[in-house]
């Protein structure tokens, strides 16, 4: 007999999760309900619908950065001047998710906890070194996104833990970021492969720091640290980006599925990494490249990486 609860606070939701083993949390339903209707898995027996838990929809800004409630929608992220200007890669990613209806209802917390290797927000959160708060009756714990993602459709959150918020740490000056993906079509698409990049420029104009992460290239979104290591200290130009991007291939374990073959994914990783680096570096230098970067790639970028 299926049960349904609609808690109005995060604490109430956590208590329900503790009480009902096997319960699943549903926010916008754009993953859970769609997968159940498509026959991917059965609808859970106990549904805890958190859309009305208003304390999960908060936005808190402080000296550490910004904390987004789990219910923050992709539509909000896509349009937020704060996210677009400071954490551009996340805005790039949310703007590409599904359709306007998916973005209006789909949430950041849901995207993370669904843990698809092809999720668009995962790679941006990895380059920001974001962390999440998990709430249960035992208390609250903070987990880096890198440690939360455990495999395709799997997280390290306990079954009774509720993801309540995502923290985006503040970034140094002269930093830019971008998320770029390869896609077959412009709406209702899932990344063939995707890459997020973050670039901080030094006073000498060289790359002082950078981070690269990939989506749809391994069982989870992953950092490409060899590419990062190579790029530090280099000039932010097409040749450096291409050399770093070539190393990103070392971090991937692509699969063959309906969207692409493993071989094609492996070949395309360096293309999307190169593009993401170019946009991130341009943004770090103060060039205005509108969100989503995928639809606004500078022609020079496309030419130099094609």
């Amino acid at each position: 007999m299926s049960r349904y609860f609609a808690p109005t606070t995060a604490a109430e939701a956590a208590a329900l999760l503790a009480e009902h083993g096997g319960a699943r949390v549903v926010a916008g339903g754009t993953d859970l309900v769609v997968a159940a209707r498509g026959g991917k898995h059965r609808m859970p027996e106990v549904l805890i619908a958190i859309h009305g838990a208003t304390d999960l929809a908060s936005l808190v800004e402080n000296e550490d950065g910004v904390r987004l409630g789990a219910l923050t929608s992709h539509a909000w992220i896509e349009r937020s001047p704060l996210i677009g200007s400071h954490w551009s890669a996340l805005a790039d990613a949310s703007a590409l998710v599904g359709s306007p209806a998916t973005r209006a209802n789909g949430t950041l917390g849901g995207n993370l906890m669904n843990a698809s290797p092809a999720m668009d927000t995962g790679a941006p959160l990895l380059v920001f070194e974001a962390d999440v708060e998990l709430l249960s009756l035992r208390g609250t714990r903070t987990v880096p996104v890198a440690d939360l993602l455990a495999g395709a459709g799997r997280t390290t959150a306990e079954p009774d833990e509720l993801l309540t918020s995502v923290r985006l740490p503040d970034l140094p000056p002269a930093t830019g970021s971008a998320y770029v993906r390869l896609e077959h079509r412009r709406a209702m698409e899932i990344a063939v492969v995707g890459a997020a990049a973050l670039v901080t420029l030094g006073d000498d104009g060289r790359v002082a720091d950078c981070r690269v992460a990939l989506s749809a290239a391994a069982p989870t979104c992953v950092r490409a640290r060899e590419a990062e290591d190579l790029l530090r200290g280099l000039r932010p130009d097409g040749a450096s980006f291409r050399d770093a991007a070539a190393l990103a291939t070392g971090a991937v374990q692509p699969i063959t599925d309906v969207r692409a073959s493993a071989r094609y994914r492996r070949a395309m990783i360096s293309v999307v990494v190169s593009r993401a680096l170019a946009v991130a570096a341009a943004r770090a230098a103060g060039t205005d490249i509108a969100v989503p970067a995928n639809r606004n790639l500078p022609t020079v970028t496309a030419g130099s990486t094609g």
Partner: peptide, 14 residues
């Protein structure tokens, strides 16, 4: 807000 009603739980519109 636009919603794909085929994939939205009816009870969530209460």
């Amino acid at each position: 807000r636009p919603v794909n009603s085929c994939s939205y739980l009816a009870l969530q519109t209460d």
